[in-house]
Design a protein around this nucleic acid. Structure first.
Length: 477
RNA sequence: CGGGCUGUAGCGCAGGGGCUAGCGCGCUCGGUUCGGGACCGAGAGGUCGGCGGUUCAAAUCCGCCCAGCCCGACCA
């Protein structure tokens, strides 16, 4: 046992960090709060990017790239936006050895620079909608950072759309929220709640913020993606108007939406176990690893048998064959489990003689002795099964840890214990929300669709007044 | 940014004013092994996180700084 992963029970934070470092997903950089995404982690991100990017293209978006540096004055044009971001900005004051006339901000998000350009590009209703996405890095000076979950610099995509009317912009906001939900559930096998954020939690500069929220294994919520209806806030701040068919000048309506490398952290915390990373097959950089088991006398023949099997399946699956001669099979099993490869195929002399291969699934540890001729189909089935069963397991966990609450004492008790998602009738008052935060550390994660109707006739669990919403509270990352 | 803990070989740690800084794992070479983290032998690898101070002498004592973890404040 050379590598040890702290158990989740012993220390959930240490467990998470152990996995990130030992599975070689990322490493600390010399700069505080920053991280190096290593090839194994970046491969995961690339697969996420590919799936998301396809979905963005299918919904009519185009990619573009806007600059890293933003004039400081731009950030200040939208009042709430300035206030929201001021504490976490990094500012460039010098360039080429000289002090700059106007400092440049390293983008914390790109609304301002994008809307300064949209002003140039939009004149007529014929220019709308404008549906642009960019893949980029952003920088936010975070006080407390954690690998993938909150880093000073991170990678993300940000979609920025401009529309002729409010309904269309709202529709876009919700469409992309739906894209995120689909991606989270179908690719990451991570069930999410969707809904609107309370005012306290919404994006600085947005009219409405929507989010997907997932429940991690420690029963804390993680905001995994956000989609904002920006109203005309940025259009007004940057004076972006268009002429309608009737010849009137109107401000443009906007949405923006993003997901980041935080998704990698979400993925780890949703499925992994005390042996290491567990990855859903759709996003696993390596889906199948073939481990030949041989002695000196059997080496050539086993490698030949295992190698030909590997050659047969490699066109269908992302796979590797581990021919290393220095590590024992047991070491390799543990290592590939730690790295989260969904399916392992063990092939030794016995299998070779009997025309078999041993197929092992990472999520359950189940070993299946298969005829060699049937193994590829078995793996195909397992890949689908594992994807589904990871989702089912996570979904069951989410449901087990979601509780409807009606009284304040019950709420306190819930968050003093294991916690999870608490579905709570809420009067809609910021004071009630703040009280819960102060006394339990739990915040409103989302106001799910249809929550107002569900709250009718109920009393706020915090104030006792008439409830306006059924709010989902949780402690969060 | 406040409180606590930590920083010595790639990783995990021991040492705690004095002569050549150790141990386990890993790494390199040779050999034997190989169906759940193998073994033998020989090696390589260190400005003791950084800077400054005290001292005849600092990994060790003092100060400042940097980084990491935990708690808090803050955080689309």
């Amino acid at each position: 046992m050379s590598k040890k992963i702290t158990s989740r029970q012993e220390n959930y934070s240490d467990w998470y960090i152990d996995i990130v470092l030992q599975a070689e997903l990322a490493d600390y950089s010399p700069v505080k709060g920053c991280m190096v995404i290593r090839p194994r982690g970046y491969a995961l991100w690339e697969l996420m990017q590919r799936a998301l990017d396809d979905m963005f293209k299918e919904t009519g978006h185009q990619n573009a790239y806007f600059p890293l540096l933003i004039p400081e004055s731009f950030i200040q044009k939208e009042a709430e936006h300035v206030e929201g971001f001021a504490p976490e900005l990094a500012v460039v004051t010098h360039g080429g050895g000289e002090k700059l006339e106007e400092p440049l901000v390293i983008r914390p998000t790109s609304e301002t620079i994008i809307w300064s350009m949209y002003k140039k590009w939009i004149q007529s209703y014929r220019d709308l909608p404008l549906l642009i996405n960019q893949w980029a890095n952003v920088l936010r000076w975070e006080k407390r950072t954690r690998l993938f979950l909150r880093t000073t610099e991170f990678l993300w995509q940000e979609g920025h759309t401009a529309h002729a009317d409010a309904d269309e912009a709202r529709e876009e906001t919700l469409r992309m929220l739906g894209v995120y939900k689909t991606f989270a559930e179908e690719f990451m096998a991570m069930p999410v709640l969707t809904g609107k954020k309370s005012d306290a939690e919404k994006f600085a500069g947005a009219v409405e913020t929507y989010a997907i929220e997932a429940l991690m294994q420690d029963r804390k919520a993680l905001q995994a993606g956000t989609s904002h209806f920006l109203g005309q806030n940025f259009a007004k701040a940057f004076d972006v108007t268009y002429q309608t068919a009737a010849g009137e000048l109107e401000y443009v309506w906007a949405s923006s939406w993003g997901v980041s490398t935080r998704l990698v952290g979400a993925l780890i915390m949703t499925h992994s176990d005390d042996r290491g990373l567990v990855l859903p097959p759709k996003l696993a950089p390596t889906q199948v690893v073939v481990v030949p088991i041989f002695k000196n006398e059997t080496k050539a023949s086993v490698l030949d048998y295992a190698g030909s099997f590997y050659d047969e399946i490699r066109s269908e699956f992302r796979c590797l064959i581990d021919k290393d001669e220095n590590n024992s099979p047991g070491w390799k099993f543990a290592e590939w489990e730690m790295r989260g490869v969904p399916v392992r195929v063990e092939i030794g002399p016995r299998d070779m003689e009997n025309g078999k291969v041993m197929v092992v699934r990472r999520d359950t540890g189940e070993k299946i002795l298969s005829d060699r001729g049937e193994a590829q189909e078995l793996i195909r089935t397992l890949i689908t099964d594992i994807q589904q069963s990871l989702f089912d397991r996570a979904k069951a966990f989410q449901e087990e840890n979601t509780k409807e609450i009606s009284s304040y004492s019950e709420l306190l008790e819930f968050f003093a214990g294991d916690g999870g998602f608490a579905v709570v009738p809420w009067d809609g008052e910021p004071e009630s929300e703040a009280k819960v935060k102060a006394e339990t550390k739990a915040t409103i994660r989302v106001l799910p669709e249809g929550n107002e109707e569900a709250a009718q006739g109920r009393l706020c669990a915090i104030s006792g007044k008439a409830a306006q919403h059924m709010a989902v509270f949780a402690k969060s990352y």
